[in-house]
C-alpha cells in the first residue's frame, strides 16, 4: 500500500469527522447574558457530575416528616406555592390545586403519604382551593387505571377516570374570568415547553411507544390558541400525571375534557418531571400570556422531595445550579456513607 493511499484514507476519514462533528460554529462574540447562561450550564453540569440524584423515598425512609431536611423542603414548597398563588391572583384568574399521584390500589409512596396531607393543610392555610384526588385514586385497580406492571402512569381508562374527576372542578369554575389581557407584541411564541409543532413517537426507553403532538405554542394539544380569546381559558400546569406519557394525545385526560367542554379552551402545558418551581417560572415567563381564567395546578407529595437540590439541578427547566444548603449538604454526606 503506497503513501498516497494512506494519506487518502486518512483524508477520507478526517474529512467526514471534521465536517460531521463541527457543524455548530461558535459565534464570534457573545453577550454578557449569554456568557452568564453558558457559565451556569457549565457549573450545573459540573455539579450534576459531583452530586448524583438520590431516590426520593430515601428522604423519608425513617417515616419522620419532621426531620430538619424535610422541614426545609416543605418550607420551599410553601414558598413557591405562595408565589404561584400571587402570580395567578395578579391576572385575576382563579386558582385550584389538585393532588394527583399514581398511587392506585396500593400503599402510597412515602413522599405522598407524608406530603399530600401537608399540601392540603398548606393550601388551607394560604386560602387556596385544593382538591385531593389521592383517596379516590387509591381505590382504583392499578391494573385498570395505570400501565402497571410496566409503568405507573395512566392507562386509557385511567385517563378517562382522571378526566371524570377533573370535569366537576372545571364546571364549578365556569364563571371564572381573568382581568388581564396582553398585546400580541407582549406574548411569547410559546406557552409550554414542548418543541413547537412537535409530532413524533417517543417511548421513554421503556419500549412503550406513544405519539406526542404539540401545537405551535409548545403545548400538548393539536390546535393553536387564538387571540383575542372567545372562550374561557383553562390552563393546566402539571407534571407527568397530566402530560401522561405512553398515551397518545387523543387519550390523555385534557383532550378528553376538551370534548366535554366545547365552550372552554383547555391549555395543557404539562411536561414530564415538572414540579411547582417549574410551574412558577413557566407561568411567569410564558403561560400567563395565554390569558387563563382558571389555573389548575397538578401536584403531589413528590413535588416536596423534588425540592432537594440534586433533584432541582437534574430536573429543573431553569438551567441554573442550586447549591446545597447546610442541611442538604449534611444529609447528602450521610446518605453517601
Amino acid at each position: 500500500m503506497s503513501v498516497k493511499s494512506l494519506v487518502t484514507i486518512v483524508c477520507l476519514l478526517s474529512a467526514g469527522i471534521i465536517s460531521g462533528c463541527s457543524n455548530e460554529p461558535k459565534p464570534a462574540k457573545i453577550s454578557r447574558e449569554e456568557a452568564a447562561i453558558e457559565a451556569d450550564k457549565k457549573k450545573l453540569d459540573d455539579m450534576n457530575h459531583q452530586y448524583a440524584r438520590i431516590p426520593d423515598e430515601r428522604i423519608l425512609e425513617d417515616h419522620n416528616p419532621n426531620t430538619p431536611l424535610y422541614t426545609e423542603l416543605k418550607g420551599r414548597y410553601k414558598e413557591h406555592l405562595k408565589k404561584l398563588q400571587k402570580d395567578v391572583a395578579a391576572t385575576g384568574a382563579q386558582f385550584v390545586v389538585v393532588i394527583i399521584n399514581n398511587g392506585a390500589g396500593h400503599n402510597p409512596a412515602l413522599s405522598n403519604l407524608y406530603g399530600n396531607p401537608y399540601i392540603v393543610s398548606t393550601c388551607k392555610e394560604l386560602g387556596i382551593e385544593c382538591v385531593d384526588l389521592s383517596p379516590v385514586i387509591a381505590q382504583q385497580d392499578p391494573y385498570v387505571v395505570s400501565q402497571t406492571p410496566r409503568d405507573g402512569h395512566w392507562s386509557k381508562k385511567g385517563a378517562a377516570f382522571l378526566a371524570s374527576q377533573l370535569a366537576p372542578i372545571i364546571r364549578s369554575h365556569s364563571n371564572a374570568k381573568s382581568t388581564v389581557t396582553y398585546k400580541d407584541s407582549e406574548r411569547p411564541e410559546t406557552f409550554g415547553d414542548l418543541p413547537p409543532n412537535d409530532d413524533e413517537v417517543l417511548d421513554g426507553g421503556k419500549d412503550m411507544p406513544y405519539h406526542v403532538q404539540a401545537n405551535a405554542q409548545g403545548c400538548r394539544m393539536t390546535h393553536d390558541i387564538k387571540f383575542p380569546k372567545t372562550k374561557q381559558h383553562v390552563l393546566f400546569l402539571g407534571g407527568s400525571q397530566l402530560y401522561s406519557p405512553y398515551l397518545d394525545n387523543e387519550f390523555i385526560a385534557v383532550t378528553l375534557l376538551e370534548k366535554q367542554f366545547p365552550n372552554a379552551e383547555l391549555i395543557n402545558t404539562a411536561a414530564i418531571a415538572s414540579t411547582i418551581d417549574d410551574y412558577v417560572s413557566l407561568f411567569e415567563e410564558k403561560a400567563k400570556y395565554c390569558e387563563p381564567d382558571l389555573v389548575i395546578v397538578q401536584t403531589n407529595g413528590g413535588d416536596i422531595t423534588d425540592f432537594f437540590f440534586t433533584n432541582r439541578n437534574h430536573l429543573s427547566r431553569i438551567l441554573k445550579p442550586r447549591m446545597p444548603s447546610a442541611i442538604e449538604d449534611n444529609y447528602y454526606s450521610t446518605y453517601l456513607k
Partner: peptide, 22 residues
C-alpha cells in the same frame, strides 16, 4: 478523489447530524 472525499464527508456529516442517540 477530492469529490469522493467530499461525498464520504457528507454522508458522515449526515450521520452525525441526524442520528438520535436515544
Amino acid at each position: 478523489i477530492i469529490i469522493r472525499i467530499l461525498i464520504f464527508g457528507l454522508v458522515i456529516a449526515s450521520i452525525c447530524y441526524f442520528h438520535k442517540t436515544r
